[in-house]
């Protein structure tokens, strides 16, 4: 018997597999396919202060081994998530979840984190700093060390739960941003969010996505994600959740060897609703084959 249990800032998980925010809703759709209680945890759909319809359609474009999405943070708003979505999720998933929070101003992050802090089934708050800062010219919070640290400090001041900052890969130095979040008090970091991408319909001579650009995810981005997780894990001493293009148990092992304590699976869920289930079932076998008795032994083993 191999050990797949890992711990993220006190959150004990049966395995390191977490469906990523925005690819799993609040679990309902996947509960129609399998018992989602097998999951290590669940990262819930990104939530903002008010309800958002999101961007116009088309919101999705296919790419080689991946996809671009521009959903635009469609969500029912923080109050509805706390009063309805999280209690509903608790009925079909008995373990603590990771609540993903988004904001377009520091105040919005603060309000959302403050409110969700008391939700009983939230174990960790993941703060998505890839959205534009509307107060400061629309530059994403996560693209400057200063604003990433500002958000981190502000939300830490109003919460009791571990705060994981979710980093954007669309930056010059991921090490600098990761270090800034750690210094500002983050309990962990998760990366990578999607890479900014674009496709054009050459027949119509127009972008496929209504919003022109979107977030590129899927198998194709795995090597980039792995490199950034490695760089971040080399820089900080807080836990790292690694994600980006993970599809198999082997990918999980690779991401953990690069320094991730747990992983999130994103786009793979959308093309195969059983993706996380398959990975969880395959993981012990792959570990045995690689002579890994305890999965914690390989975290960051590649120096």
């Amino acid at each position: 018997m191999v050990n797949t249990k890992v711990t993220l800032s006190g959150l004990m998980m049966d395995n390191p597999i977490i469906p990523a925010s925005g690819t799993f809703g609040f679990g309902r759709e996947f509960a129609e396919y399998y018992d989602i209680n097998i999951l290590g945890s669940i990262c819930t759909k990104g939530t903002t202060e008010s309800a958002r319809f999101g961007n116009p359609t088309p919101r999705v474009a296919e790419c080689t081994a991946g996809m671009i999405n521009s959903v635009g943070l469609q969500n029912p708003g923080i109050d509805e998530v706390i009063s309805f979505e999280l209690p509903q999720l608790a009925k079909i998933y008995s373990k603590p979840v990771i609540a993903n929070i988004s904001g377009f101003s520091v105040e919005e992050f603060v309000t959302c984190c403050q409110k969700i802090d008391s939700a009983p089934n939230v174990g960790i708050i993941e703060v998505n700093i890839s959205c534009p800062n509307v107060r400061h010219g629309g530059m994403a919070f996560g693209t400057s060390a200063e604003s990433a640290a500002e958000v981190t400090k502000a939300v830490k001041a109003v919460t009791t739960k571990p705060i994981y900052m979710k980093l954007s890969p669309n930056v010059t130095s991921i090490k600098e941003i990761a270090a800034a979040c750690e210094s500002a008090g983050a309990d962990g970091i998760s990366l990578i969010n999607t890479l900014l991408g674009m496709r054009i319909d050459i027949g119509r001579r127009k972008p496929i996505i209504a919003n022109k650009m979107g977030g590129f995810s899927g198998k194709a981005i795995f090597p980039i994600a792995l490199r950034m997780v490695y760089e971040a894990a080399q820089t900080v001493n807080i836990p790292v959740i690694g994600m980006g293009g993970i599809e198999t148990a082997e990918d999980v092992i690779e991401m953990m060897m690069a320094g991730a304590t747990a992983v999130q699976v994103g786009a793979a869920n959308l093309v195969n609703p059983y993706a996380c289930k398959n990975i969880i079932e395959d993981l012990p076998e792959v570990m045995e084959r690689l002579k890994i008795k305890n999965i914690n032994d390989i975290i960051g083993i590649v120096k």
């Binding site: 759709e29 129609e32 319809f53 359609t57 919101r59 999705v60 959903v71 869920n269 959308l270 093309v271």
Partner: peptide, 17 residues
Amino acid sequence: EERMGCGFGACMCCTCE
């Protein structure tokens, strides 16, 4: 009809008002 991602309600790519 709308351009879809997952087809089972998870990704929110095909939302309409």
